[in-house]
Design a protein around this nucleic acid. Structure first.
Lengths: 344, 344
DNA sequence: CTCCAGGACTAGAACGTTGCAGAGGAACAG
DNA sequence: CTGTTCCTCTGCAACGTTCTAGTCCTGGAG
């Protein structure tokens, strides 16, 4: 015999069941359940009581089907990026306070962006918030022809038609980091970059510009890196093998910086005594007590709030056409991996 | 070619639009779009072509509303746990090959489990897969009275009524780790535990039992730890402050182990030369080239497959009542943080 | 030639909601 | 007492699908 149905009757209770139980019409039950006005206090209480008794739960699909607005924002994120995890959390609360809901779709090695977006679309999301999307600009514009699209943390150049961008000022962040290091007395500052990752080009540019401005153009040096600990570790090994070791390193992101830290540690190079390290993102990794990494904060809650705000503005037709890009100034968070350089 | 705006009036195209465009009835268009049989080859092609032209996309909400089955599995996961990220990825593929879809709902400091489950329920998920849920057993059984519930990685004792459990044999994993260390020649093996975290009690038990079996009962030693790097780092500091330092450490999970590694590194204690370290989970953290942590693998794809399989079995009434718990044997992955102890 | 099987196609009723157009009353102003 | 207004409540038609029960063919068996 097949296992017993989860619920006695097997069926999940509907508005009709609820209405019957409370002895009112379906419409009235609906009114009560969504807290609309137009129901008497006594009846309201009776309906709510009945709902509790039979364990009634509104069916969001039917609800959304009926009202043409779904109030759903689709969010595409990468399961392996802590920065995305932080963003998703912030997006939940930002969306909630704007009266919207979030539908998540994950990207992973075995699940492409294309696939992720596909499911969000069939779920009838009204707008898409894509975290550091890698898709070609052509695909993004094609999407944007169908519904509002916000790209977070990935700058689009040339600006993609109809695609909104919310991002941190990566160049400015790199500048802040360099300024901080220079103020401490550093002159040999290396940047381990992020290759083709979203934001990497801007961080490179900001780094170079800042070095120039401090008259250190000839000391500027880029080392190829990437987004992961492994990339950082490899770059750090390159630096260690070198005759002239820098006194400070600006890594592409926190992950990368941690790879750097770890490699230095293993090689017996003291941080920050012998070398200073700065990360980027201020993800929760950086905040771990034993890491305590100086890093450039991306103001996650702010980015999330703006992304939602922009998506909603497009949906309600409030946004103008000439402010497609919102840039948030990052904020340097000084912790314990930077200090004045070792003087000879 | 960049197709033109979906439909003149800006509305997303529906089956009716598609049918009109292709010159067939709505029913037939539906048949073609879901690949059912009952349509001629020529017509089929014509409808598909029309769908491409107007950019038609089925509306999953309407679809699910109509067919009483939603084929949706709700997954609750923690944004901050890498192990969960790995599981989610595996769940996507497992569900897909079982003909089901996944709806994600995240747990985070600012978003409770209760809230996460709430949204999954209103989304009409047919079953719930909860990754290391912390909810009290009473709430789980209450949920399970409404729909099939699978708890992954959290053992429920006493067995909760109607709740399925899929988990790794945590005690067995701890045993494997201890056996490995003993085989290498270690005798002073410490376990940094996970407190009240799901699985922690079993790992403690497995550790103690293994130590007993090797006649090392009097050397067994527990140090309070936890799930994060910080917990591991704190525990490691305790060990370092001690007069008699162990030669090997079994940490509660990879995160914790990494905190331990880092602290040892900073203190100039060489791993594995002076002390061996073993983690738990084989999350991608452990696989990073510069970490290369010996760890107990949880067989993520297998856990995911079984969780989906079990949920589906309940839904289709195929599962019996007396095999509520599925236990998967973990597998020790030996990397480079373990070696024979330093001999005096 | 008749009959029937079966393939291609269609009409219309669900699914669980919400929104709209009203039906009854009670309260109140005139 | 009449008319008006407001409030509570109801019935019914959507929303975009799928499903059931057909209709209308074509062609092959008898």
């Amino acid at each position: 015999m097949p296992s017993l149905p989860a619920v006695p009757d097997g069926k999940r209770p509907t508005l009709t069941d609820l209405a019957a139980r409370a002895g009112v019409s379906v419409s009235l039950a609906s009114i009560v359940m969504r807290g609309a006005k137009g129901a008497g206090a006594a009846t309201r209480e009776r309906v709510l009581e009945a709902a509790r008794e039979i364990g009634y739960r509104p069916d969001s699909r039917a609800r959304l089907l009926r009202s043409s607005r779904s109030h759903l924002l689709g969010v595409q994120f990468d399961l392996q990026q802590p920065f995305h995890a932080d963003m998703v959390e912030a997006l939940y609360t930002a969306a909630e306070s704007a009266g919207y809901q979030i539908a998540l779709s994950a990207v992973a090695p075995s699940r492409s962006e294309q696939h992720a977006v596909e499911t969000l679309l069939t779920d009838r999301c009204e707008a898409l918030i894509l975290l550091s999307p890698h898709a070609p600009v052509s695909r993004l514009t094609h999407l944007a022809a169908q519904l509002p699209v916000v790209s977070v943390a990935r700058r689009l150049r040339p600006r993609a038609q109809d695609v909104d961008v919310v991002r941190a000022a990566d160049d400015e962040g790199a500048r802040q980091a360099v300024d901080h290091l220079v103020a401490l007395g550093h002159r040999d500052i290396v940047h381990i970059d992020g290759g083709r990752a979203p934001g990497a080009a801007d961080r490179r540019r900001g780094y170079k510009a800042a070095m120039n401005r401090h008259g250190l153009a000839d000391r500027a040096r880029l080392v190829p890196g990437g987004l992961t600990e492994d990339h950082g570790a490899a770059a750090a090994r390159t630096l260690l093998a070198d005759a002239s070791r820098p006194t400070a390193v600006l890594a592409f992101n926190d992950h990368c910086a941690i790879g750097v830290l770890d490699t230095f540690l293993r090689a017996g190079v003291a941080v920050p005594d012998e070398i200073s390290v700065v990360g980027f993102d201020d993800s929760h990794l950086a905040r771990l007590a034993h890491v305590d990494l100086t890093t450039v904060g991306q103001e996650v809650p702010e980015l999330a709030r703006l992304a939602v705000e922009r998506a909603v503005a497009r949906l309600e037709g409030e946004a103008t056409e000439d402010d497609r890009e919102i840039v948030v100034t990052p904020r340097l968070v000084i912790r314990s991996t930077t200090a004045a350089p070792f003087r000879i």
